[in-house]
Simulated assay, not measured.
Amino acid sequence: MQIIEGAGAWTPPASAATDWVEHLRVPDLSVGTYCIPAGGLDDQTPHSEDEIYVVTAGRARIVTPDGTAEVGPGSVIFVPAGEEHRFTEVTEDLALLVVFGPAYGSRRTDR
């Protein structure tokens, strides 16, 4: 067992528009926190792993090829590997607990 301190907690990005911190990595999954300040831009590109977001703080809109949805604390979002997605209209500092399966970057083909 491991308690993951600070996972999902809002942390203001140091110098970039967004902030990603990985808290746990094992071969089959990784867990981290992704933060976007109010008015910030989400510049991520599609990932090669399946992904679950849990909104722990803030409000925004998620945009995918299938549509858009308003998200806020308690929202749980599944994004399959390879799907374009972006958080827009971040109206309150957004903190997301993120779970990747398998671990983030482990399926990359550009290595």
Rank of each mutant, 00 (worst) to 15 (best):
T18M: 15
V26I: 15
V63K: 09
G6C: 07
V99I: 15
D42A: 11
E5S: 12
P46N: 09
L97F: 06
S15D: 14
A103M: 10
V71F: 02
G72H: 10
F78Q: 07
L96D: 00
D93K: 12
A9M: 02
P80E: 09
Q2R: 14
D110C: 08
H47Y: 06
L29V: 14
P73Q: 12
P27S: 13
A7Y: 01
E89H: 14
D43L: 14
G67H: 03
A81Y: 04
A7R: 05
H47R: 12
S30C: 06
A16I: 02
I36M: 06
A103H: 10
C35W: 03
G67Q: 02
A9H: 03
F87E: 02
T33V: 07
D42R: 05
W10T: 01
L97D: 03
D50C: 07
E84Y: 14
E5L: 13
Q2K: 12
R86G: 12
Y34H: 13
V63G: 00
L97R: 01
G58L: 07
G72P: 05
E51P: 12
D50P: 04
I77H: 08
V79A: 13
P46W: 11
D42L: 10
G72W: 03
S48M: 07
E70Y: 02
V26L: 15
V55D: 01
G6F: 02
I4Q: 01
R59I: 06
P46T: 05
Y34D: 08
Q2P: 02
E49A: 05
P37I: 13
V98K: 04
P37Q: 09
F87Y: 14
P65L: 09
R61C: 02
P27V: 11
H47F: 12
D19V: 01
V99R: 01
I62H: 00
R108D: 15
